[in-house]
């Protein structure tokens, strides 16, 4: 009996080990190779949704969002690499954008906006002047990817990176982005609250610290800092072009996209985070389209 119990435990442990190993591999594997919770050989969103990979020019000229598909070179707790908050984070943002503003968004099907997934090396990147990325504390940029991102942003593209917490994640991100934008020429700056980006349409009076719904639930809603004291303050930082326009914004120590992605899962979570999350999201999207 004890032997059977031990062998059952061994099977469970083996399965758990294999599963965690596959998960870790998927995080670190190069994009396009193995990846995604949905299984080997397929890219999947955070909740298992199939990705939208552009197979040519976009179908219409309406506003759309692209998710950066990158390679993770390290792991962050509660992170899911490029797929974090994809695709429903941006889909919900697009939906609210079309409802609250005059923006016409590109739809996959009625009431479901497109959420394209692009690599920095894809030509499709340049059709999409609004690019988002999450969990960028795990990102690793090749030389080619850094160059492409450099050109993309200086040509007029816009990138918003979100949901990376703590010093290690920040250091990883700032190290990698320096490959595309050397700090001596393009320093990362805190964006003050009187910057136009916070007043595009909504009045954003603070940078909200939004936690993932899992962390929020795990703490019973008592804490919003996923790394404790290390991530106590949410940051809104950016890199500006030579004309002073923000072309890359970073929401550090906060998971703004979760306030969109998880808007319908818990009314309490919604009321606590989504209004501020959408206000910031809409302002940033409008800024990206107008500046």
């Amino acid at each position: 009996m004890a032997l059977r119990r031990r062998s059952h435990l061994l099977v469970v442990l083996t399965v758990l080990f294999a599963a965690s190993g596959a998960y870790a591999y998927a995080q670190l594997a190069p994009p396009g190779g193995f990846g995604g919770i949905g299984g080997f050989g397929q890219l999947r969103g955070e909740q298992g949704d199939p990705p939208e990979l552009p197979k040519g020019p976009f179908p219409d000229g309406r506003f759309t969002s692209c998710r950066m598909l990158y390679t993770s070179v390290r792991r962050e707790a509660n992170g899911a690499g490029w797929r974090t908050d994809y695709p429903w984070g941006e889909r919900h943002l697009m939906t609210r954008l079309s409802e609250l503003t005059k923006t016409q968004v590109s739809l996959l099907e009625p009431e479901v906006p497109h959420a394209w997934l692009v690599r920095l090396t894809d030509e499709a990147l340049f059709q999409c002047p609004f690019l988002v990325a999450s969990d960028v504390g795990t990102i690793g940029l090749s030389r080619e990817e850094a160059d492409r991102l450099h050109d993309y942003l200086l040509k007029g593209g816009f990138l918003w990176v979100d949901d990376f917490w703590g010093e290690a994640a920040w250091n990883q991100w700032s190290k990698e982005i320096a490959k595309a934008f050397p700090p001596s020429e393009f320093p990362i700056q805190d964006v003050p609250l009187d910057d136009p980006i916070f007043h595009s349409m909504m009045e954003v009076k603070r940078v909200p610290q939004i936690t993932s719904i899992r962390f929020w639930r795990s703490t019973g809603g008592r804490s919003t800092s996923e790394r404790g004291a290390e991530s106590a303050t949410a940051h809104f930082r950016g890199i500006r072009d030579k004309g002073g326009r923000l072309m890359l914004v970073m929401t550090h120590n906060t998971d703004v996209a979760d306030s969109w992605e998880r808007e319908g899962e818990d009314p309490e979570f919604f009321y606590q985070f989504s209004p501020e999350g959408y206000a910031l999201g809409i302002d940033v999207a409008l800024y990206a389209m107008t500046h």
């Binding site: 000229g61 309406r62 506003f63 609250l100 503003t101 005059k102 923006t103 016409q104 002047p129 007029g156 595009s200 349409m201 004309g243 999207a285 409008l286 990206a288 389209m289 107008t290 500046h291």
Partner: peptide
């Protein structure tokens, strides 16, 4: 009349032209 990239890129294109001032009224909602 609607937020769209055409407005952004038009403004960017002439931003460095000291002899043109494109005063933009962007309807957001």
């Amino acid at each position: 009349g609607e937020p769209r990239f055409e407005m952004k890129f038009l403004n960017r294109a002439v931003a460095d032209d000291k002899n043109l001032q494109v005063v933009t009224l962007q309807r957001t909602a």
